[in-house]
Amino acid sequence: MSADSKFAFGNFNYICSTVSLTLCPLVGDDDGIEPLCYSRNMKLADSLIFQPSTLIIHIIALIMTAIMIYHIRSKYTAVGRKEIVMFFYLYMLVTIMDLLLISGIIPTASDLYPYFTGVHLGLISATFWCLLLNGFVGFQFAEDGTPLSVWSIRISSFIVFAAVTFLSIATFQKLGPFDYTNPVALWVVFFIFNGAALLIYVILQIVLVVNTLDDRWPLGDIVFGIAFFATGQVILYVFSLDICIFAKHYIDGLFFGTIATLLSVMMVYKYWDSITKEDLEFSVGSKQNVWEVKELLGEEEMAATGGLYSQQLHQVPSGGSGYGYNNNGNSPAPGSYGQANFYEDRH
């Protein structure tokens, strides 16, 4: 068993015969392109669920992304917090759309499937674009967290999303010059545009770490992130067929590709977390641990200090102006709201 054809520029035939991407039923010919081997389905509540193992990974990815978003939002004063969190929101949307499409919850025979797939591809490109723009945040071309920085990413990411979504739907519906039998423009966006955005982001972060930071450990996060992503792509497009045959249709390359993508996204978070420090003085809801070094006191100093402390405790200013005391200075008085005084008069 082998793929239908060799890898070719602007052609999804080889890729879709190897792995079941969401766009494969919509390109190539009228019936789409079916992979030679794919993960077996599972019946659940009178419905067929495709790619059940990959579906579980998608659910785990949603949980992990929610945790990362929570930690990012809790770092109130970290640099680029508002900008990077948009990348994780987009990745969460991509995961949700992928979950709905590959599992068959939205069946390929549905009239809505081409539109959902177009939105899915648009979200993927917007996610890569958002990551690219986050690569410039550390250079402070615009101060992070300002409306200029935040809204430039939001608006441009939406433009990319809308453009790629339109291109995808036009290709699937054979509108104008776009044709699903020759989807060159969609192929260029899917592989070259998204790949270039990722490559530029990586280069920018390497330059940032080398020229700006004293610590070189964040380079390890970048290396691991690229390694995970590259491994996932190789498994997805090269070894998916072999994995599917070896595993007897229980899993395919899409399973490992989804895991590798999740790990690479987690390394993006780990990298951002390693290069940003929160200013605890201005953080909200953070508890500072203040460590003090106290010298041991001699017996005479302890005695003198204890006597002074005792004298201060029992000394009452004239006129009874001390907080929580009556004018005669003999007994504790209720506080401003009737609560008992913190200290008790023991004499």
Score class of each variant (00 low, 15 high):
residue 210 V to Q: 10
residue 24 C to R: 03
residue 273 D to I: 08
residue 14 Y to K: 10
residue 108 T to L: 06
residue 305 T to D: 14
residue 306 G to Y: 11
residue 139 F to S: 02
residue 196 A to P: 00
residue 209 V to D: 01
residue 274 S to Y: 01
residue 234 V to N: 02
residue 106 I to T: 06
residue 345 D to P: 05
residue 257 G to P: 04
residue 114 P to N: 09
residue 220 G to P: 01
residue 219 L to V: 03
residue 258 T to L: 00
residue 285 G to Q: 13
residue 307 G to K: 11
residue 120 H to M: 08
residue 254 L to E: 07
residue 323 Y to A: 15
residue 77 T to H: 05
residue 239 F to D: 07
residue 201 Y to T: 00
residue 221 D to W: 06
residue 302 M to H: 01
residue 57 I to K: 03
residue 339 Q to K: 01
residue 185 A to F: 15
residue 177 P to M: 13
residue 336 S to K: 03
residue 140 Q to N: 09
residue 67 I to T: 04
residue 108 T to M: 11
residue 61 A to N: 14
residue 249 H to Y: 15
residue 174 K to I: 05
residue 84 I to P: 08
residue 8 A to F: 07
residue 313 L to T: 01
residue 261 T to I: 03
residue 308 L to P: 00
residue 137 V to Y: 00
residue 206 I to C: 06
residue 126 A to C: 06
residue 321 S to Q: 13
residue 105 I to N: 08
residue 167 L to N: 04
residue 21 L to G: 08
residue 62 L to C: 14
residue 50 F to N: 15
residue 6 K to F: 08
residue 117 T to A: 13
residue 278 E to R: 14
residue 34 E to C: 12
residue 202 V to Y: 07
residue 141 F to H: 03
residue 43 K to V: 13
residue 330 N to T: 14
residue 141 F to N: 00
residue 283 S to G: 04
residue 256 F to P: 03
residue 220 G to D: 00
residue 72 I to W: 05
residue 125 S to T: 14
residue 8 A to K: 13
residue 109 A to Q: 11
residue 77 T to L: 09
residue 33 I to K: 05
residue 228 F to V: 01
residue 171 T to K: 06
residue 71 H to P: 00
residue 262 L to G: 01
residue 36 L to Y: 05
residue 67 I to C: 06
residue 40 R to Y: 06
residue 269 Y to R: 04
residue 27 V to T: 09
residue 333 A to P: 02
residue 142 A to D: 05
residue 97 M to Y: 15
residue 87 F to Q: 08
residue 19 V to Y: 07
residue 56 I to V: 15
residue 184 V to T: 15
residue 340 A to M: 10
residue 317 P to H: 15
residue 65 T to Q: 05
residue 323 Y to E: 14
residue 345 D to M: 06
residue 5 S to Y: 07
residue 230 A to T: 13
residue 319 G to H: 02
residue 59 I to T: 10
residue 88 F to M: 12
residue 345 D to E: 00
residue 49 I to R: 10
residue 80 G to T: 00
residue 15 I to K: 05
